[in-house]
Amino acid sequence: MHPVSLIALFAASASASVTPRQSAVNQNVIPKSFGVTAGEGKDQVQVGSCTGANNKLIPCFCPPAPDSPEFLSKLSKALTDGFIFSKEQVALPITLDKFNDDSDTSVETTKLRATAMIQVMQNFNMTTQGVGCPGVAVPALGKMQQTGILARGLSGLGNNGN
């Protein structure tokens, strides 16, 4: 075999075995609404608090919209790293590749996606563990985590229910 052909053969086989690494989150596996809209139901007594699910108070900045670039970026980073902070704290239960596989609609995977999104929400500032949006800010994710079904019908959830 000619040396140039041999080099081309090796180059072709090497490039065929490399799969592109995903870096963005597949928004098709994220609910269109978390069931609560940030800033609604401002509390008159506790300034800076708004109404979340079950009339529980939440920070008024919670939750970010499901398509918020900041949320998607933090979720993508956490899923890529496998951790929100370090290997000793807050490990995510799912990889970015598995999270993004919208052909996998299994109950188990849907629950893992919801758990990962809730973990990112609860640690939203990504600098201090536990500083972010509580679970009552994202009732659609809580429903997903419990049922394993992507929450589409949000009637009765949170402060907007649609």
Rank of each mutant, 00 (worst) to 15 (best):
E40Y: 15
G41N: 12
K42Q: 14
K42H: 11
K42V: 14
D43P: 05
Q44M: 12
V45C: 12
Q46V: 15
Q46N: 15
S49H: 12
C50Y: 04
T51W: 06
G52L: 06
A53C: 11
N55G: 13
N55D: 15
L57V: 05
L57A: 12
I58N: 08
C60E: 12
C60A: 11
F61S: 11
C62K: 00
C62F: 00
A65N: 13
S68T: 11
F71P: 06
L72V: 02
S76D: 06
S76Q: 07
K77E: 06
A78S: 14
L79F: 05
L79H: 02
T80M: 09
D81Q: 09
G82T: 06
G82I: 04
F83T: 13
F83V: 15
F85W: 08
F85S: 05
S86F: 08
Q89I: 15
V90M: 11
A91L: 10
L92S: 03
P93T: 01
I94R: 08
L96K: 02
D97P: 04
D97W: 02
K98G: 03
K98V: 10
N100H: 02
D101R: 06
D102S: 12
D104C: 01
S106A: 02
V107W: 00
V107P: 01
E108H: 01
T109G: 05
T109W: 01
T109A: 08
T110N: 05
T110H: 02
L112Q: 06
R113P: 00
A114C: 00
T115M: 10
Q119E: 10
Q122V: 05
Q122E: 14
